Amino acid sequence: MHSRLPNPLDLVPELRDLTKALFQTTANGSVPQTTIGLMQLRAGQIVGNTYLTVLHTGGLRRAGESEERITAVASWQDAPYFTEAERAALALVEAVLQPSAHGERVPDALYAEAAEHYDDKALATLAMAIGQVTFYLPLALIGKPLPGRSPAEQWKQAPAA
């Protein structure tokens, strides 16, 4: 079993700088990294991508998150494990990534709820965290890297030049 593509970083070396910049953007200290990890796990679940779900689950485990919190991300609305700030962040990722039957995806009430917990810089960081995970979504869907494997193992070998 192997991915469909070789490592995109080998195919498009400019992606390294972009990846570094995206990680620096979301690690600016305005939002706890745990919150970003929870959001990105939920994003992987919403888009139904095993690679992203396993990747972000592993990151949360390495950060010391409990199995209860990790597991409950899929049903966060009625789970007792999340702070109000984390709930607002999870609601934002769902609003952005899921169509709304009621029109606007991020209504004023949701924005106001998030703004109770996050300042403008943090709200922009939350938006970039959603953008970060969705930036890699096409590579995860098209390239189909192998879940739970190291970067060297998850991509098929590039043909010899």
Rank of each mutant, 00 (worst) to 15 (best):
M1P: 14
H2G: 13
S3H: 01
S3Q: 09
N7A: 03
P8V: 00
L9V: 02
D10M: 05
V12R: 01
P13D: 00
E14H: 03
E14Y: 04
R16V: 04
L18K: 11
K20P: 11
A21W: 11
L22K: 05
F23H: 15
T25G: 14
T26N: 09
S30G: 04
P32W: 12
P32Q: 12
P32I: 09
T34Y: 12
Q40R: 07
R42W: 00
A43D: 04
G44Y: 00
G44N: 05
I46K: 08
N49G: 12
T50G: 13
L52K: 12
T53R: 08
V54C: 05
V54Q: 08
G58Q: 08
L60F: 04
R62F: 03
A63I: 03
A63R: 03
G64I: 01
E65R: 05
E65H: 07
E68A: 11
I70H: 12
A72Q: 13
A72K: 09
V73Q: 11
V73P: 10
W76Y: 01
Y81P: 11
T83L: 07
E86K: 03
E86P: 06
R87G: 10
L90Q: 01
L92G: 02
A95T: 07
L97Y: 00
L97A: 08
L97F: 08
L97G: 05
Q98V: 15
Q98R: 11
H102Y: 13
H102R: 13
D108H: 13
A109L: 09
A109R: 13
A114Q: 06
E116Q: 11
H117P: 02
Y118M: 10
D119R: 02
D120V: 14
K121P: 13
L123R: 06
T125D: 01
T125S: 02
A127D: 14
A127Q: 14
A127E: 11
G131A: 07
T134V: 13
T134G: 02
Y136F: 01
A140D: 08
I142R: 10
G143P: 02
K144R: 14
K144P: 11
K144A: 15
L146D: 05
P147L: 03
A152T: 12
Q154E: 09
Q154G: 07
Q154S: 13
K156R: 14
Q157P: 13
Q157L: 15
